[in-house]
Design a protein around this nucleic acid. Structure first.
Lengths: 202, 202
DNA sequence: ACTCCTTCGTCGTTTATCCAACAAATTTCG
DNA sequence: CGAAATTTGTTGGATAAACGACGAAGGAGT
């Protein structure tokens, strides 16, 4: 049941509690103000946590935001057990769907002008997509470094998902999926060729 | 805005947090099990609080229960600003109504056989009613000790409210109110006679 | 430019909570 | 009934959080 990417077990309850309260307060505030006008004081005050304690956990509000994004995205991944599984077209579909819906959710959630935290979110999500691909691809040996393929795939998936979300007339996710699946697969199939069509050379 | 009965200000946030979590966990458990079968372990586990910490706040689960009752009843009193005001028939009406509704709420809330916590609740609520009357009556000098009158009134009010709640066909609260108001007033008016009807014998 | 005010990081000290362990009391169950 | 398991209070030492204070940095208004 424990994730292959995570090691956070038996952690001091006080730490968990504090982070949870800070996250919650931050979420609430994001519904009320825009990102920039939220101060660390606001967050700690709302959370009932001492300001000094905040800095024991996060260097600033950006770090808290990134932590929060990672948490939520990881939760979506784990909910579908996409960690601790291997590459397959179905798993890839599920992953893409998670990314699309995650971006859609987040963009509707917050009161901020988009430009403020989207880059932060992008960095965190892409990194996690890449980590996931690394885990998938490292189970197979390949002529192309897994890191290269994972980087390409993570960037293209996030870019496509963002494009899908920003479109005026948002395409149904299912048709969008069929449209881009071959593209993303192309990034990965170079490693998987021997597994799919023909068991060629060696 | 601060109550005349309470002094709890500027309290360490950790203490407030811990008590809140313990209260919440206990409430949840009361919906699931009966009072007796709930252990301190259950509560602390559910609350995410160390068991040793529980005993730093409460001597046992009964103490927690009493604390909780006091909190909730006091909240109802303060919501109607019945603290920090004087005696009047309207205020007395309001108080009786609070007691009746509080007992009705509590009796519907919990899964326990009534006999288990009703005596605990009774003690706490009566004490608070008495304290309230003491505050009201001490503003006037009287020939009968305020403590005597307050005791009589608090006991009769609680007893009547419990009777009203236990009845098979529960009378409308308003008619019940008019029925008992003279009775309860009789306990108090001995002190207030000089204020009401005739300014007789100095 | 200038104050006035808020927020920001950081620090040392105090306090609350965690944790593991313990013996005693209690409950469960064969 | 008696053995096993669970719960209960309690302890000492480790750690996270609270608190108050501080100078520095930023912002708003005059």
């Amino acid at each position: 049941m424990s994730s292959s990417l995570v090691i956070e077990d038996k952690i001091d309850p006080r730490i968990k509690r504090t982070r949870l309260l800070l996250e919650g307060a931050f979420s609430d505030l994001l519904h009320e103000k825009d990102f920039q006008s939220i101060s660390v004081q606001d967050i700690t005050e709302r959370a009932g946590i001492n300001r000094a304690t905040f800095y024991a956990h996060f260097s600033d509000k950006y770090a808290l935001f990134e932590f929060k994004i990672r948490q939520e995205f990881r939760a979506e991944i784990e909910k579908r057990t996409l960690n601790a599984c291997h590459y397959s077209e179905d798993n890839l579909r599920a992953l893409i769907q998670v990314v699309c819906e995650f971006i859609r959710e987040a963009s509707g959630q917050c009161k901020s002008p988009r430009g403020q935290f989207e880059p932060l979110m992008e960095a965190q999500v892409k990194e996690q997509i890449k980590d996931l691909f690394m885990a998938w691809l490292n189970q197979t040996e390949s002529n192309i470094p897994a890191e290269i393929a994972a980087t390409a795939a993570s960037w293209s998936i996030y870019g496509l998902a963002q494009h899908w979300n920003h479109a005026k007339e948002r395409m149904p996710l299912s048709t969008f999926m069929e449209l881009i699946l071959p593209l993303v697969n192309a990034n990965l199939l170079q490693n998987e060729e021997e597994l799919k069509s023909h068991q060629g050379k060696a």
